[in-house]
């Protein structure tokens, strides 16, 4: 199935801003992260169509996944 992936801030480095991706049925956010080479500790927030979700959230065809990195400096 097809999903759209939007990356934000440092996640764009050596990747992309927006991309259309083919993924397996019943894939989760965690699977997408793995495909992108992003580890879970690097993740700040994941959203599906603008809604905050956890990494075990299953994706549906056509959704937009937004991924924001974790930032903790001061």
């Amino acid at each position: 199935m097809t999903v759209f992936i939007k990356l934000f801030a440092g996640f764009r480095e050596n990747r992309f801003k927006v991309a259309k991706r083919e993924i397996l049925e019943n894939s989760t956010i965690a699977d997408v992260l793995e495909q992108l080479g992003i580890t879970e500790p690097e993740l700040g927030v994941a959203m599906i169509d603008g809604r905050h979700v956890t990494v075990d959230q299953v994706l549906y065809t056509g959704v937009t996944v937004s991924l924001f990195p974790k930032v903790g400096g001061g």
């Binding site: 801030a9 440092g10 500790p41 993740l43 990195p69 930032v71 903790g72 400096g73 001061g74």
Partner: peptide, 26 residues
């Protein structure tokens, strides 16, 4: 919070748990 070119901002009032939700994992 800041890192490199990036940062986050949010304001939380008593009774809200936005920050806790934001950092629920790891």
């Amino acid at each position: 919070a800041i890192a490199g070119w990036y940062g986050y901002l949010m304001t939380q009032f008593p009774g809200e748990r936005t920050l806790q939700k934001f950092f629920t994992h790891n």
